[in-house]
């Protein structure tokens, strides 16, 4: 249609803008459709309105803030009103948004429920699993690892069913709240080399490994007698005590010595000997001051559930 229109211009030629440069260079006038022009005006108007209602122009070291467009949200319990900005919008959304309200509702339900109720309710477990995962990764993963597998010899594995300090929900909560200090003295000066080998052999025998019977018998005397006194903490059966965080030496899990990853019997014995001779001193900080009561409750259930708590 536009072609038809152009033909109606004078002299039957294409219309020009009316200027001539260098005498004979002319510019064709190929006009835009009118609806396009109106679109242009509309977007221009939009821009002007935007300048009025939203932060837009820099003025000195400040900027125009926009009018009739304030956001009210809470900072530390106090209401703050500010001009429109995305950070305030985000804060408001985190406090009053649909999801935030939903999460608060779940959280208060969790706080009101007993541990027994929480662990038997699939919906509450779903909530603690998703919230707990974030909390765990933010606070605990630095030592215990993203999946809670820990680092052998340094940070306990939380995914298995062996708990140094007790695996009930109550003791896990106490551990998170107050932290733990694990200590075992070094026996470098107490035992000579032969005695050390005997004790290592005895410790190996506790979890049913193949050992030299005679050496193990001698080691047992040191373990359970005044010579070593290991039974003070590990008990005479070697099962450990949750109250002092001593390891259970009779099960398949080595909580401190990196035995499982060793290939030969010699190196397995070496890593045990290293622990006995140097001792251990480990600490988990307390989280009472850093995490809220609700967060600790969520983390307790999350950690309890990781390996299947007691």
């Amino acid at each position: 249609m536009s072609e038809v229109k152009q033909d109606k211009t004078k002299q039957g030629s294409v219309q020009t803008t009316g200027h001539a440069w260098d005498g004979d260079i002319q510019e064709f006038n190929n006009p835009l459709p009118r609806w396009w022009l109106w679109g242009f005006y509309a977007t221009t108007l939009f821009a002007v309105l935007y300048w009025v209602f939203y932060p837009a122009w820099p003025v000195g070291d400040s900027y125009t803030k926009g009018v009739f467009n304030n956001i009210t949200y809470k900072v530390g319990g106090k209401e703050v009103t500010t001009h429109w900005n995305t950070r305030a919008l985000l804060m408001k959304d985190l406090q009053e948004g649909e999801e935030a309200v939903k999460q608060r509702k779940y959280m208060s339900g969790l706080m009101a429920a007993s541990y027994e109720k929480i662990v038997s309710d699939p919906k509450m477990m779903q909530f603690t699993r998703s919230v707990g995962k974030i909390l765990f990764e933010d606070n605990c993963a630095a030592c215990h690892g993203m999946g809670g597998a820990g680092v052998a010899g340094l940070f306990p594995n939380l995914v298995d069913d062996d708990w140094l300090w007790g695996g009930s929900l109550k003791t896990i909560q106490a551990t998170i709240e107050s932290g733990r200090r694990g200590y075992m003295p070094g026996f470098k000066k107490t035992f000579n080399d032969a005695q050390m080998n005997d004790v290592v052999e005895y410790v190996m025998s506790l979890s049913g490994k193949q050992v030299d019977e005679d050496m193990a018998k001698r080691g047992g005397v040191l373990f359970n007698g005044q010579g070593g006194g290991c039974y003070y903490c590990h008990t005479s059966k070697g099962t450990g005590m949750a109250s002092v965080g001593s390891a259970n030496l009779t099960d398949s899990i080595w909580t401190v010595a990196k035995v499982s990853s060793q290939k030969t019997p010699e190196t397995k014995r070496k890593v045990i000997r290293d622990v006995i001779s140097s001792g251990i001193s480990r600490e988990m900080p307390m989280w009472k001051a850093r995490l809220s009561e609700a967060e600790i409750k969520v983390l307790t259930v999350y950690v309890h559930e990781l390996g299947g708590g007691k």
Partner: peptide, 16 residues
């Protein structure tokens, strides 16, 4: 020089 009387159109009018 161009024809000064010729009106410059900024848009293409729709033919109804």
């Amino acid at each position: 020089m161009s024809d000064q009387k010729e009106q410059v159109v900024l848009f293409e009018e729709r033919i109804p």
